[in-house]
Amino acid sequence: MKKRKVAILGATGLVGQRFIQLLENHPYFQISTLAASQNSAGKTYKEAVTWRLNTAMPDSISDMLIEECRPTFHCDYVFSALPSSVAGPIEDMFVNAGYTVFSNAACHRMDANVPLVVPEVNWQHLSLTRYQTTPGVIITNPNCSTVGLVMALKPVADLFGLEEVNVVTMQALSGAGYPGVSSLDIVDNVIPHINGEEQKLTSEPLKILGNYNEHEGAIDFAPFKVYAQCNRVPVVDGHLLSVSVKTKEKVSITALIDAINNFQPLKGFNLPSAPEKPLIYLPQSDAPQPRLHRNLGGGMTVSMGQLVQYSDRSLRFLALVHNTIRGAAGCAILNAEMYEAMNG
């Protein structure tokens, strides 16, 4: 098949670099445009960026000139890695010019007719795009911690229903971008506050795990409650979530572990970025750990562990998500692959 041309907005940041890394040699998509701030526009990518990943900068993009974030690109899809502080009006400009935008920013996630998607959980919500009235469309992926949370909750919700969720996050430094958190703040420390994170974790899962109302072109939000407390910890990559759940029905740990390890809702779609095992249960008493398990499934697998039943209708577990791969660029690319499978 002929590859789709794609542009990356915010290409010099950490998430932008992840997009470039993950799109190298992609069978569906080819990077045709890199865009960033006015300070970087006109420079080659290698001149403008400080490459922070542990793989080499792809030769195919190192000499590519960076353009300004204006809707003048010849491409099929736009991936936005822009920070939420500037993303809204720029993404609107592209959508109003007819582009299909896959956004990692928070600006439009909770808009009524904008899909907020983790494909393994709610790919059906992509159909919301038909109710957008702009010349182009926008599709969003959630906050990086939300991605791990909803993937881990999905088999629990399907088996037993959800009544209440309490989550405490231990979030990696890369989630704050570069240069991020000062070393004098984070070394020998945990920072028990991340601006805006708790609100995202308490609202986004209800949309993602809600039901698509095809007749009204809307999402009926899930009715359970989410309570969150977020912490920044001295880990480079990998958000660890400690989750306690009250369920509607009686819990079976055996059935849940079996559902986790057989969770393959995208198996029939043949999507290049979809891991063979989107969820995996690790039975070891000291798992999951960011350094050991964040790169499972190429960083696209969410690992779970420490599953304990408290009562007939309550349990707890740990979930680990690679925040810049599955929680950011990788999820947006998988959304684009799913959208292409539905509409291509």
Rank of each mutant, 00 (worst) to 15 (best):
G180V: 00
V168F: 01
T202L: 01
D220E: 15
I186C: 04
G210K: 02
Y178F: 15
I219S: 01
G217A: 03
T169Y: 02
K200Y: 12
I186Q: 01
Q199Y: 07
I186V: 04
L209R: 06
V181N: 03
I194P: 05
G175Q: 09
A176P: 05
G217E: 09
I208S: 09
S174L: 07
S174E: 03
E216C: 06
P205G: 07
Q199R: 12
N189L: 11
I186R: 03
V190Y: 03
I194R: 11
Q171G: 02
N195R: 10
E214I: 15
N195T: 06
L184P: 00
L201F: 09
L201N: 08
N211L: 02
H193E: 10
L201E: 06
D188H: 10
G177C: 06
V187S: 08
V187A: 10
E214Q: 14
H215V: 14
S203I: 08
E216G: 05
I219Q: 00
N189H: 13
L184H: 12
E198M: 04
G217H: 09
I208C: 08
A172M: 03
N195E: 12
L209N: 11
Y212C: 12
P192G: 07
Y178E: 14
K200W: 11
G196M: 06
L184M: 07
G180E: 07
E197C: 12
M170H: 07
A218G: 12
N189M: 10
A172R: 01
V190K: 09
P179L: 01
N166I: 13
I208Y: 03
L209Y: 08
E216S: 14
E197R: 14
E198T: 04
N166M: 13
G196L: 05
I194E: 06
I219P: 00
T202Q: 13
V181S: 05
G180F: 01
G196P: 09
E197F: 13
Q171T: 14
N166L: 14
Y178I: 14
G210C: 02
S182R: 03
L184K: 11
K207P: 08
E204V: 05
H215W: 08
L206A: 11
H215Y: 06
G175D: 05
S183M: 13
L206M: 12
A172T: 03
A172C: 05
V168C: 05
D220G: 09
M170V: 00
E214Y: 12
N166H: 15
V187G: 05
P205N: 11
N211H: 08
G177W: 00
L201K: 05
Y212W: 13
V167I: 10
E197H: 14
Q171L: 10
G177T: 03
I191G: 02
